[in-house]
């Protein structure tokens, strides 16, 4: 029963409570943004954005430590979101060009960090986060950044869905896709920034993409997608944190908390996928049986 008591008791510890708070806020916003990423098929571009934000994180960190990290990431995120929106709009490039630009930026970030002493430790923290040593200041920063992203996406949600469903129709209705795309890309970039101290630059992609994908497996109802994605992400964050805590306290195994949360997300996805495939199979069999009965009669 230890694992289950850990679901509650783990968060008596202030650092665990802070980690949970950061992840819950992040999950809520990443879930909403992630559904749009899924509907638009922007997974690859989101991946590019996480890479592009990295040099900003690195330069900010080298320049001003943990506080600088936040400023640098914000600047890089906004810059990357704007550049990306324009590149895609111009359509002068392919996926290859996006990949080249953003991996190049990622390399710049790594080179910047490599000038630091304790290079490996720093890089590790930037890439994979330091969920359990998140400071109260970082909690506040995360909440503020998430709030901005939430307002951006919330105020354009139905228009974003319109654009995702039918670009021509949205254009004809007088919407400017460039504006909508910019808003969404900035929101994605903000989620990347918000996540950089908690789950790090690499794992944030899972927080952005898995909940939206799970929601698509669970429901076909448009406005249910958003709460399902956010709720699933929050649940995974809670279970993942508690599981990591339990493994370390009762099992003596030290699990990196960010990665544990991500794995719980993925396990949840696999479970949803299996259930969905099973249900589809049963439904298909039922349909065939009805058909056979009708023909047999």
């Amino acid at each position: 029963m230890d694992v289950f008591t850990s679901l509650i008791t783990a968060f008596d510890l202030p650092f665990m409570a802070r980690a949970l708070l950061v992840l819950v806020v992040l999950s809520l916003v990443a879930g909403l943004v992630g559904v749009l990423v899924n509907l638009r098929g922007l997974e690859f571009i989101s991946d590019g954005l996480t890479h592009a934000v990295f040099p900003g994180v690195a330069i900010g960190f080298v320049w001003g430590g943990r506080d600088g990290l936040f400023v640098g990431a914000m600047v890089a995120a906004l810059l990357a979101a704007v550049v990306l929106t324009v590149i895609v709009k111009r359509a002068v490039t392919s996926d290859a060009a996006i990949a080249i630009v953003f991996t190049a930026m990622f390399s710049v970030g790594i080179i910047v960090v490599s000038r630091e002493t304790n290079y490996v430790g720093q890089l590790d923290a930037l890439l994979f986060g330091r969920l359990l040593t998140v400071s109260p200041t970082e909690v506040n920063q995360t909440v503020v950044v998430c709030l901005i992203a939430l307002v951006l996406v919330g105020s354009t949600l139905k228009e974003q869905v319109f654009r995702a469903f039918d670009l021509e129709g949205a254009l004809a209705a007088g919407y400017r896709p460039l504006v909508l795309d910019l808003v969404l890309n900035v929101a994605i970039a903000l989620v990347v920034v918000a996540a950089s101290s908690a789950v790090g630059n690499l794992l944030v992609l899972a927080v952005l993409i898995v909940p939206g994908a799970v929601a698509r497996l669970v429901t076909n109802r448009l406005w249910l997608l958003f709460p399902v994605a956010a709720g699933f992400a929050m649940l995974a964050a809670w279970v993942g944190l508690a599981f990591g805590y339990d493994a370390s306290v009762n099992g003596g195994v030290d699990l990196p908390s960010g990665a544990t949360v991500v794995l719980v997300l993925v396990v949840g996805y696999v479970a949803a996928l299996v259930v969905r495939l099973g249900l589809d199979r049963i439904r298909a069999l039922g349909r065939r049986r009805r058909l056979v009965e009708r023909v047999g009669r």
Binding site: L39, K158, E159, V161, F162, A164, F165, D166, L167, E168, G169, A173, G174, R216, T219, N220, R221, L222, L225
Partner: peptide, 21 residues
């Protein structure tokens, strides 16, 4: 033919888009 047949949206939600503006 431009529309993704798997998009999770109901007919009335599509029609509601006409009211968004």
């Amino acid at each position: 033919d431009q529309i993704d047949p798997h998009f999770p949206i109901s007919l009335e939600q599509v029609v509601m888009m006409g009211r968004y503006r």
